[in-house]
Every structure is written in structure tokens, then in C-alpha cells.
């Protein structure tokens, strides 16, 4: 049966060709971490040319470091520190203005649950110090005077403070904004698949080896457990939880997500995860929803068409926005 000889030869050649083709575009990845913005920033970029990836990641880190210098409240020369020191306000960089504009917008739409002016309150609670304590009620109410979305006004690049003592604290949205810009730099360098994670503020660009990125969401009460997994592509994922930074006093947990109305940590949720188109927005929304609590939080999310959220309420019950199911992977 001589007919089968060319067939076998053909098949073997096809197999070899397949092997060669699969082996050729060896998808490479670059994974680098740096201390930045008070946390660890990790960039994972995928592509075919390691040196181009390396260059892109370096450029992204540089851009994020530049934004950190502009937006950090721990650096004296930053826009934010200068703003906090100034009496009436000043002109800031375009980027700073952009972040403040976003923060003010979320503050307005969350009826003040998200607030950029909590700097003094956070200093008072001193959650990052060696031995944080619950401040006196009088001290808390004193810091809450003249706060709120109206205390800070923006027109163009000009920021105005209603009260000289007002301390601006961008919180996570500065980190989120930096991640967004880092991603933009990676894209400019031709990277099509990457992840940037700045201490929980993350953006997932493109796909992870031919499937969407899979993100595990931390269980708010079991340190080593994942609550659910979501699959995303070209989306930001941010989780705000009461387990991130907290201390306990007299058996009560005091965490870092403050309710601007009471000056105490918000009580409605254990954790909130937001999937949105930008990290800065996702971070702001996660904080806002956390402070608002599950029901009002979901109500507010409806106003943001591109954003979906999942909430673990204080009693452990799960709430999710209507479009959330599209992201969640069945366990």
C-alpha cells in the first residue's frame, strides 16, 4: 500500500511544523517589584521581546515614581503637601488637578461618603503608628468641622481651600491614578498584556496567556482564603477591606476606612471589590461604597455604567451589582 507513505510523511511534517510554530513565539514575561507610594508596586508584562518588555516596565515605573513625587502626602515638595500647607489654595500640576477632579466628582455623587479632605482625621487616628488608639470624641468632632466636598474647590488647575487647616488626603486614588498612568506607558511601548498591582490597586491589561486574567478576591475574615475569583481583561480591580489596616481596642476593630459623617471607621461592610475601567475610579468607588454600606453603595454604583461591585456586608452577607456575575468565575 504505497499510498500511505506520503500521508505519514505529511502528518509527521505537519506535527513538526506545529511543534516549531508553538515553540517559536515563546511568550516571555517580565515581573518586577519596587517599593513606591508606601506600598509594593508589582508590574508583570507579557510579550515576545524581553528587552522591549524590560524597557517598557522601566518606563512605567519611572512614570509612577514621577506621579508619586507629585501626589504623595509624605513628601514635602509634592503638590498635595504644598496644598495642605497653603492657606487658601494654589495652582497644581495637570495630573494633580485630574486626580482631585475625579475625587471631587465621586465625593459629590456619593453624598460625601468619599472625601478628599480627611487628612486631619487620619492623622488623629494615627493608624500607621506604633500604638494607635481611639481618639477622644471631642478631638474627632473638631477635625470634622468645615469638611466635606464643598471644602475643596477646583477650577482648571487652581485648587481652593475653604479652610486653611484643611489637609488633603488623596488616599488610594493617587495610587490608582499612578497605576492607570503606568498602564498607559506600557501601552505606549507596545505592551498588550500586563498587570500592575500597587498594594491591591490593580489593572489587568489584555490577557494572561490566551485567557482573561483571573483575580482571586481575598476573604475578609480568613487570611489565606479566596472568597471568589473574577475573570477580567482591560479592567481595574480594587478591593477595600477592614482587614487591611486596623487595630483592636476593647474587642472592637478600628480600621482605616473612615466615615466622614461620624469620624469613626465605617460599619456597614467588611470588604468591597470594584471592577471598573480605571483604577483611580475603582479605588474611589470602593471606598465610597464601603462607607455608604451595601444598599446605598449599590444604589450609587448604578450611576457608574462601567463599574460593577461585590460587597461583603458587616454581617458576612454578599451583595453584588447587576453586572457583577459577568466577571465572577464559578468556583
Amino acid at each position: 500500500m504505497p499510498w500511505n507513505r506520503p500521508l505519514i510523511l505529511g502528518l509527521l511534517i505537519a506535527l513538526l511544523a506545529l511543534t516549531w510554530w508553538r515553540l517559536q513565539p515563546q511568550a516571555d514575561e517580565v515581573r518586577r517589584s519596587q517599593f513606591m507610594m508606601g506600598t509594593v508596586v508589582e508590574i508583570l508584562a507579557q510579550g515576545e521581546d524581553p528587552s522591549a518588555l524590560d524597557e517598557a516596565v522601566t518606563a512605567a515605573f519611572a512614570e509612577m515614581a514621577r506621579l508619586d513625587r507629585l501626589l504623595s502626602s509624605h513628601r514635602q515638595e509634592s503638590d498635595i503637601s504644598r496644598l495642605s500647607l497653603s492657606e487658601t489654595g494654589l495652582t497644581v500640576a495637570t495630573e494633580t488637578a485630574e486626580v482631585i477632579a475625579l475625587g471631587l466628582q465621586v465625593a459629590r455623587r456619593s453624598a460625601g461618603a468619599f472625601d478628599l479632605t480627611l487628612g486631619r482625621l487620619k492623622t488623629l487616628w494615627a493608624l500607621d503608628s506604633d500604638s494607635p488608639q481611639v481618639p477622644s470624641l471631642a478631638a474627632i468632632t473638631a477635625t470634622l468641622d468645615d469638611l466635606g466636598p464643598e471644602a475643596l474647590m477646583l477650577s482648571g488647575r487652581m485648587v481652593r481651600k475653604a479652610n486653611p487647616a484643611l489637609q488633603v488626603d488623596l488616599g488610594g486614588i493617587a495610587k490608582g491614578y499612578a497605576v492607570d498612568r503606568g498602564i498607559a506607558v506600557l501601552k505606549e511601548h507596545g505592551v498588550t498584556a500586563a498587570a500592575i498591582n500597587a498594594g491591591g490597586d490593580m489593572y489587568l491589561l489584555g490577557q494572561r496567556l490566551e485567557r482573561p486574567w483571573r483575580i482571586g478576591i481575598q476573604h475578609p475574615r480568613q487570611p489565606n482564603a479566596v472568597l471568589v475569583t473574577v475573570q477580567v481583561s482591560d479592567r481595574a480591580v480594587v478591593t477595600s477591606g477592614d482587614y487591611e489596616r486596623f487595630f483592636e481596642q476593647n474587642g472592637k476593630r478600628y480600621h482605616h476606612l473612615f466615615d466622614p459623617k461620624s469620624g469613626f471607621p465605617a460599619q456597614g461592610c467588611r470588604s468591597v471589590t470594584i471592577v471598573a475601567e480605571s483604577v483611580a475610579l475603582a479605588d474611589a468607588l470602593a471606598t465610597a461604597v464601603f462607607v455608604l454600606g451595601p444598599l446605598s453603595g449599590l444604589e450609587m454604583l448604578k450611576g457608574y455604567s462601567g463599574a460593577e461591585g461585590m460587597i461583603v456586608a458587616a454581617d458576612g452577607r454578599l451583595y453584588a451589582s447587576d453586572g457583577w456575575a459577568a466577571y465572577q468565575v464559578e468556583p
Binding site: 500500500m1 504505497p2 500511505n4 507513505r5 500521508l7 505519514i8
Partner: peptide, 9 residues
């Protein structure tokens, strides 16, 4: 050999 190839393929 050829027969074996036919059968297996």
C-alpha cells in the same frame, strides 16, 4: 510496517 501504519492511523 506499512500495515501497522494503516491500522493505527
Amino acid at each position: 510496517g506499512r500495515a501497522a501504519w494503516s491500522v493505527s492511523l
